[in-house]
Amino acid sequence: MTDNVSAEQLRQFIERIETLEEEKRGLQDNVKDVYAEAKGTGFDVKTMRGIVRLRRMEKHHRDEADALMETYRQALGLH
């Protein structure tokens, strides 16, 4: 591979990454707008973020987290 080809390939990778980062920022702004809209209609955004996080988890990981939370609640008398 010549230096020109390597430089061109690198430039193309960098430009693709920059484009994707820009798209990601746009999507993050859209998500932020949806949360703001939900908050405006009375939903609790913190709880919604927790639900979104839980839905991304595999069931067995979610079950483990639930069991651990229950154990900690019991240990602290939070029932």
Score class of each variant (00 low, 15 high):
residue 55 R to A: 13
residue 47 T to W: 00
residue 66 D to I: 11
residue 25 R to I: 07
residue 7 A to P: 00
residue 45 V to A: 13
residue 40 G to V: 06
residue 73 R to C: 10
residue 50 G to N: 14
residue 5 V to S: 11
residue 57 M to R: 08
residue 26 G to T: 07
residue 42 G to W: 03
residue 76 L to T: 00
residue 47 T to V: 06
residue 23 E to W: 08
residue 21 E to W: 06
residue 19 T to R: 15
residue 15 E to I: 12
residue 69 M to W: 08
residue 2 T to G: 15
residue 8 E to L: 15
residue 21 E to P: 01
residue 69 M to Y: 09
residue 15 E to W: 11
residue 65 A to F: 13
residue 13 F to P: 01
residue 25 R to H: 06
residue 38 A to R: 03
residue 6 S to Y: 06
residue 59 K to E: 04
residue 71 T to E: 14
residue 23 E to V: 04
residue 17 I to C: 03
residue 34 V to S: 09
residue 39 K to H: 02
residue 35 Y to Q: 08
residue 26 G to K: 13
residue 44 D to M: 00
residue 68 L to T: 02
residue 45 V to D: 09
residue 59 K to H: 05
residue 23 E to S: 13
residue 24 K to Y: 08
residue 26 G to H: 12
residue 79 H to N: 14
residue 55 R to S: 05
residue 21 E to N: 12
residue 24 K to S: 07
residue 26 G to L: 14
residue 54 L to A: 09
residue 41 T to H: 03
residue 44 D to E: 13
residue 32 K to T: 07
residue 38 A to V: 07
residue 54 L to D: 13
residue 63 D to A: 14
residue 68 L to M: 07
residue 27 L to Y: 05
residue 36 A to L: 08
residue 29 D to A: 11
residue 62 R to D: 02
residue 27 L to C: 01
residue 10 L to H: 07
residue 79 H to Y: 04
residue 39 K to A: 15
residue 63 D to L: 15
residue 28 Q to I: 12
residue 32 K to M: 10
residue 42 G to Q: 08
residue 38 A to I: 04
residue 45 V to T: 10
residue 5 V to T: 08
residue 75 A to I: 06
residue 49 R to P: 02
residue 25 R to C: 00
residue 39 K to F: 00
residue 30 N to K: 11
residue 20 L to D: 03
residue 15 E to S: 15
residue 34 V to N: 09
residue 5 V to Y: 11
residue 65 A to D: 06
residue 74 Q to W: 02
residue 70 E to A: 15
residue 44 D to L: 06
residue 42 G to S: 03
residue 31 V to S: 03
residue 78 L to V: 04
residue 41 T to D: 00
residue 9 Q to G: 10
residue 52 V to F: 03
residue 7 A to H: 05
residue 57 M to N: 06
residue 50 G to C: 01
residue 43 F to A: 14
residue 14 I to F: 09
residue 72 Y to K: 10
residue 70 E to I: 11
residue 12 Q to N: 03
residue 7 A to V: 07
residue 12 Q to E: 12
residue 69 M to S: 09
residue 64 E to N: 11
residue 47 T to R: 14
residue 31 V to P: 00
residue 9 Q to C: 02
residue 40 G to A: 12
residue 64 E to G: 11
residue 60 H to V: 10
residue 52 V to I: 10
residue 28 Q to N: 12
residue 21 E to F: 05
residue 70 E to M: 13
